[in-house]
Amino acid sequence: MAAGTEPKPETLAAFEAAKGFMPVHEGLALYAAAAEAGGLGLPLLEVGTYCGRSTLLLADAARQAGTVAVTVDHHRGSEEQQPGWEYHDPQVVDPELGLMDTLPTFRRTLRRAGFEDDVIAIVGRSPQVAKVWNGPVGLVFIDGGHTDEHANGDYEGWAPHLAEGGLLAIHDVIPDPAKGGQAPYRVYLRALASGSFTEVSATDSLRVLRRTAPGI
């Protein structure tokens, strides 16, 4: 059974309260994609958990569809979240190690929203996890590191696992280089150029593509 087109009000409230960067209108578009993809009965996969803001939306859609959300992150923060960078948050630094550690905050986010049983959290680097993943998924949401190395690694690792008819969502697709990094945008163009994807929707920096053919 597919989910509705919008998350439950309590899920949306938890999303807005959670640490993270995705605005509500993009979150609603992501949920709509997850709800549609949930109709395939396959896991909904996210690359880039951070503190679980967008994970809540996937968890809600997965629960309604009778499937599960899977989220992959090493939880040490991406490049722009390190000390001295724009998106650094000292509240998610391990005081003993002096390193970013978003895992405890993420677990609290899930617990407070009541989604612990709907999410499989994998702690590891995306390309390594993708190599040992052994099944199809209905949604791949790429929202990890924003360098070309990391964005391409996420795409190359997970797009082959996306079932035909499944959806590829890419966050932070910014065509204008004056407004932000270009790595997710280049991955978006790469996916379209592969001939395996057609665009479904564009909501600010969130792009949703449907897999229509094998290969990447």
Rank of each mutant, 00 (worst) to 15 (best):
T5E: 15
E6T: 13
E6A: 12
K8S: 15
A13C: 08
F15G: 14
F15N: 14
K19L: 13
F21G: 10
F21L: 07
M22E: 09
P23S: 03
V24P: 05
E26Q: 13
Y31A: 11
A35N: 10
A37R: 04
A37L: 00
A37Q: 07
G38N: 05
L40Y: 11
L42M: 10
P43V: 09
P43E: 05
T49A: 02
T49F: 03
G52F: 02
R53Q: 05
S54N: 04
T55H: 02
L56W: 01
L56C: 04
L57V: 13
A61E: 03
A61R: 08
A62R: 02
G66R: 03
G66C: 07
T71W: 01
D73N: 08
E79Y: 14
Q82G: 05
Q82V: 02
P83K: 02
P83C: 03
P83R: 03
Y87A: 02
H88P: 02
D94F: 03
E96N: 14
L99E: 15
M100W: 08
T102A: 00
T102I: 06
T102N: 00
L103P: 04
P104E: 06
P104T: 05
P104Q: 03
T105I: 00
T105V: 06
T105N: 01
F106V: 04
F106D: 09
L110D: 11
L110Y: 11
R112V: 13
I120V: 15
A121M: 12
I122M: 09
R125T: 14
A130S: 10
W133G: 07
N134G: 15
P136W: 02
V137P: 02
V137F: 08
V137D: 03
L139Y: 12
H146E: 08
E149R: 07
E149N: 04
E149V: 08
A151M: 10
A151R: 11
A151P: 13
G153D: 05
Y155T: 04
Y155W: 10
W158C: 08
P160F: 06
L162M: 01
A163R: 09
G165Q: 05
L168V: 13
L168F: 12
I170H: 10
H171S: 12
H171M: 04
H171Q: 11
D172S: 12
I174C: 07
D176F: 09
A178V: 06
A178E: 11
A183Q: 13
A183H: 11
P184R: 13
Y185G: 12
R186V: 11
R186A: 14
V187G: 13
Y188C: 12
Y188W: 14
A193W: 04
G195M: 00
G195P: 00
S196P: 12
F197S: 14
T198L: 08
E199C: 08
V200C: 07
L206R: 09
V208E: 03
L209A: 12
L209K: 10
A213Y: 10
